[in-house]
Amino acid sequence: MSSANHHESRPDTLAARVKAATGISLAQCYQCGKCAAGCPVSEEMDLTPCQVLRLLQYGQDKYDEKAMRSAGIWLCLSCETCSTRCPQEVEIPKIMDVVRAEALKRGIAHPKSKDILAFHRAFLDSVEQTGRLYEIGLVANYKLRSGHFMKDVMLAPKMYVRGKLGLLPHMIKGTAAVKRIFKRTLGSKG
């Protein structure tokens, strides 16, 4: 019989992290490409979803890194089209979340993720401060973070006249509790 350690995978691979965080085994994927076929944004991706999974299946640092450095992972909309149709029941959006979080942690996220990240961070900033999303605050914060100052400037007045812009943030009573939730989860990552 072969050595008992033969099949033990290294605990520091991305695949192992995915397994620990989501319970999904990368070995389930048999590379049929149905995810890439149905993905609304796969044409825009440098690595299609099935390629990301393929890289992770190796369990080797250089391929893990290639997946984490890709721009494509930041385009995943979590629309769940892939997971709904996957014949092997692989929940790809959950895997994408893990790969993105890991890329951020290691500071190797693709430069193109900058705007997308800026938006998500601005969004969460707003929620952390007031407990709810303050849309004007979000846009202002996003512009600061991304440097896209002119983005949608023509939209705001139109929204205003239609009563779609709340000028003041809604503060909830439990703001302090929400702040503590952020501290316990996101911690210093934000």
Partner: peptide, 26 residues
Amino acid sequence: GRVSRIYEEDGKLIVKGADTLMNGEP
């Protein structure tokens, strides 16, 4: 590759698949 979806448009059946030998190209 597998086919993700088929739908009808302008009298044709649109078959959306991917080529996994071409990096999962739709």
